[in-house]
């Protein structure tokens, strides 16, 4: 468990080291558009340069709408390729990562921007009626519609503002835990 704790979003120690780290490892092209976002939301966005062409922005859930709107209006990212929910029971959070890509600007076609946020997690989930909620990004990125429905049924993250929060893949009468949570165990495993 000690490994997981070091990976949790560290607040103060990392903030001091990021500026130097960014200058050392940040590729020039990614830096040009990430700086634009980071300058606008200096305290709310934590930037990680994972590798070439892959950048991750960790955003607080209160700011995710503003950041997404800014990305949509000021950068060429125009669609979401994937929306992944990740369960972190030790940190009592559920992470949701939007992978954004661009079709319109050829210079950005290699880039994938991961926009990540976290929702609170409850021990006994009641999907849709508990505190595990996030604002939906459907108004900015229309392509997340089915992806967010999938995250809702698989992890129980309710997306506020999504017009159609129905089940997609699971059976209508599924009454067990959301299956991609870590406390839902595979039989025989």
């Amino acid at each position: 468990m000690s490994t997981t704790e070091t990976k949790s979003p560290p607040k103060d120690p990392k903030k001091e080291t990021t500026p130097e780290k960014v200058e050392d490892t940040a590729p020039a092209f990614e830096k040009s558009y990430v700086d634009q976002i980071a300058n606008q939301f200096s305290d709310d966005v934590e930037v990680e340069y994972i590798k070439e062409n892959r950048t991750r922005l960790n955003v607080k859930k209160e700011k995710i709408i503003d950041v997404a709107k800014f990305i949509k209006d000021n950068t060429p990212f125009d669609h979401a390729e994937s929306v992944s929910g990740v369960d972190f029971p030790d940190e009592k959070e559920i992470g949701v990562t939007y992978h954004l890509g661009s079709y319109t600007d050829p210079a950005y076609s290699k880039q994938v921007l991961a926009l990540a946020t976290r929702a609170p997690r409850e021990e006994t989930p009641n999907p849709g009626n508990d505190s595990t909620k996030l604002p939906s990004l459907r108004d900015m990125f229309y392509s997340v519609e089915f992806h967010e429905r999938e995250v809702f049924e698989m992890l129980g993250v309710y997306f506020e503002g999504h017009p159609d929060n129905r089940r997609l893949l699971l059976p209508e009468d599924w009454a067990d835990l959301p299956p991609l949570r870590k406390d839902f165990k595979n039989k025989g495993r």
């Binding site: 999907p127 129905r166 089940r167 699971l170 059976p171 209508e172 009468d173 599924w174 009454a175």
Partner: peptide
């Protein structure tokens, strides 16, 4: 009465 989850 209370509807089963997912019933539309």
């Amino acid at each position: 009465k209370e509807m089963p989850p997912g019933l539309q």
